Amino acid sequence: MTKTLTVAEAALREIARRRGVLLLLALLPLAFYFSRRGTEYWQSVRFVSLGIGWTLSTAALFAGNAARGIEPRLRLCGYATYQLYLGRLAALWAVGFALATPYFLLIRFDLDDVRYDGIALILLLTVVVAPPLGLAVSAVLPRELEGMLVLLTIVAMQMMLDPDEAVAHALPFWFTREIGEYAIQSNAGADHVARGLVHTSVVLAVVLALGGCAAAVRLRRQVPLTASPSGPSGPTI
């Protein structure tokens, strides 16, 4: 546990170095929210949650790429792969809750006639899903620009695709629409929440497995080579 917390602390310090970028990313959901506030409630709530999802997944992408240089040395110092992975996730989840809380308060005092428990659940699940999604993309696409474009494409498709299309249901933030129906529409039943939770569980299992397996492969500990006592004729294992 101590090593996991140490990694989390180091990840928070690394994220804090990008204060300017993160500030701009944190304000993006606010722009999403007010762009739809005057039209339909469900759009503004959904857009702010998608904005938070993109912000957190992008922060996770930065954190994952920044860790590539130090993680092999930490493995040689005795840190397990799961400690490195969970420590980084813990830091990102902490950042996510700090980001989502003021947006929930904004919705709480700005919108009437909505189910605030449903909105809180949407933001909670967004915070849970976005960081492992960003780390998974970081594992597959180590360059930040390509990773950011992929994450932006995912969020844009989630916004624009027809909700009746199967592709929209397969995207990682589909639960925002399912639970959003319950949160905004008074006649929507709890079945929307159930479907949203099932979707979140599947997505979370996939991105955690992808990110964890990628980290395990990348950080697979190599048995060090030692010099032969007889001289430089060749290394022995």
Rank of each mutant, 00 (worst) to 15 (best):
D117F: 10
R115F: 04
L141G: 00
Y116P: 05
R68T: 08
T176C: 05
F175G: 05
L197N: 02
L145I: 15
A170E: 01
L135H: 02
G234A: 04
E144A: 12
M160D: 08
R177W: 13
E144S: 09
S201I: 01
A31P: 01
L61W: 10
A156L: 15
V217N: 07
A94N: 01
A63V: 09
R218Q: 08
L197E: 03
G64I: 04
E9L: 12
I179V: 10
G38A: 13
A90E: 00
N65L: 05
N187R: 14
I122R: 05
L86N: 01
V202A: 07
T6E: 11
L27M: 13
I70W: 14
L210P: 04
R46K: 05
Y103S: 04
F109V: 00
E144I: 11
L125F: 11
V193I: 15
R36D: 11
R13P: 11
S35L: 13
M157Y: 12
S35M: 10
L105E: 02
Q222H: 13
Y182R: 13
Q158R: 01
P142T: 06
L111E: 03
S49K: 00
L135E: 08
R46F: 00
A98R: 03
E71P: 00
F34T: 06
L89K: 08
L27N: 07
A156Q: 01
L56R: 03
R17F: 00
Q185V: 12
L24Q: 10
R19T: 06
R18M: 03
Y116Q: 14
L149T: 04
R13Q: 09
V48H: 07
P72Y: 09
V203K: 01
A214F: 03
P235M: 13
N187V: 13
C213I: 15
Q83H: 00
L22H: 02
L121P: 04
Y33D: 06
C77F: 02
Q43F: 08
D113V: 05
I154C: 02
I52N: 03
L123C: 04
E181H: 13
R221M: 02
V48N: 10
S35W: 07
E14N: 12
D112H: 15
Q43A: 14
P235L: 15
Q222S: 09
S233P: 07
A188S: 12
F109I: 02
Q185D: 12
F175M: 11
T6F: 11
D113K: 09
V127A: 02
A170L: 13
L219K: 03
F175C: 03
V45E: 03
A205W: 02
R218L: 08
G212S: 10
A80R: 13
A130M: 06
P163I: 01
L171A: 09
A11Q: 10
L106I: 01
L5G: 07
P72D: 00
R143M: 07
M159A: 10
M160Y: 11
I154M: 09
S201R: 01
V155D: 09
D112N: 13
F32C: 08
H169L: 14
V207L: 04
R115Y: 06
C77H: 11
F175K: 03
W174I: 06
V207M: 00
L141T: 05
G231K: 04
P132N: 00
I184Q: 05
V155W: 07
T58A: 13
T55N: 09
G134Q: 01
G118E: 09
